[in-house]
Simulated scan of single mutants.
Amino acid sequence: MSDLPISEDEAAHSVSAPWRVSDGALVAEFATTDMARGGEFVARIIAAAEELNHHPDIDIRYATVRLGLLTHSVGALTELDVELARSISAIAAELGIG
């Protein structure tokens, strides 16, 4: 997986909803049933992030989890962001989170 910059268009076309590009980052919002479920989701995201050694910005507000992905060391989107976004979407699907 490369940490070379990719275009915002390339990133946007490499992921599916709820991911979108905003202010140069991949962002998404996931609605869970309650804060405990949101915490479980975040714990799984953290495990996936540790595997990739690539860490998202995470904001949890009761049952809503907001995520931002940007390769801070590069100052741009990279394939690492796309890969983590796909992993997070897979976790959400496994947990039945939309």
Rank of each mutant, 00 (worst) to 15 (best):
V15A: 11
D9I: 07
P18N: 01
D57H: 14
E94V: 02
M35R: 14
L26K: 04
A92G: 05
I91P: 09
L84C: 00
A85L: 04
F30Q: 03
E8Y: 03
A12M: 11
R44A: 14
L69V: 08
L67W: 14
H72Q: 10
D9P: 00
V15I: 08
D59F: 09
G96Y: 09
V65I: 09
H55F: 07
S2P: 11
R61E: 07
I60F: 04
A90N: 13
I46T: 05
T64W: 04
G98H: 14
L69T: 10
I91F: 12
A28V: 02
N53L: 10
I97F: 07
I45A: 01
S73A: 15
M35I: 06
G39R: 06
R20L: 06
F30G: 03
V15Q: 08
G98A: 13
T64K: 13
V42R: 02
A92K: 06
A92I: 02
A90M: 10
A17E: 15
A25Q: 15
R86V: 00
A36P: 01
A85S: 04
L4Q: 11
P18T: 01
E8A: 14
A63V: 00
D34G: 04
H13L: 15
G68N: 03
T32W: 04
G75Q: 08
S16N: 13
P56Y: 11
Y62C: 02
S14D: 12
A93G: 07
L95N: 03
F41K: 01
R66W: 09
G96N: 04
G39Y: 04
P5K: 03
S7T: 15
E94R: 10
R61Q: 10
A31Y: 05
E83D: 09
T32Y: 06
A47F: 08
D3Q: 09
P56H: 11
I6E: 11
I46S: 11
S89A: 14
R44D: 15
L52A: 15
L26P: 09
W19M: 01
A36D: 11
L67E: 12
W19L: 02
